[in-house]
């Protein structure tokens, strides 16, 4: 499956009440709180088989699908 589609699927599973495709910043728009970020991190780690460094678990890396994908790719590089 396309990586971006998979991330959107995870977001929908996490918070089905929100429309992630029309948000420019998931965290600032209130679509993800810090506990959602923790849950999403474990979902990303399990699906993409990566370990996300604790220092990378910051709001800006979860602001958009592109940012999340970049986080996954950088985590692949550092594992």
């Amino acid at each position: 499956m396309d990586e971006k589609k998979k991330i959107l699927e995870m977001l929908a599973e996490l918070r089905p009440e929100f429309d992630y495709e029309n948000s420019s910043n998931f965290v600032e728009d209130g679509l993800l709180d810090s506990f959602d970020i923790v849950s999403l991190t474990t979902m990303l780690e399990e699906y993409f088989k990566v370990t996300i460094d604790g220092m990378s678990i910051v709001p800006e890396n979860y602001a958009s699908v592109d940012a999340i994908l970049a986080l996954v790719k950088s985590s692949k590089g550092s594992n």
């Binding site: 996490l14 918070r15 089905p16 009440e17 506990f35 959602d36 923790v38 849950s39 474990t42």
Partner: peptide
């Protein structure tokens, strides 16, 4: 919070 969202934290946290 929605129960599904809260339940997900059970394993993680």
């Amino acid at each position: 919070f929605p129960a599904q969202q809260t339940m997900r934290l059970k394993k993680v946290m």
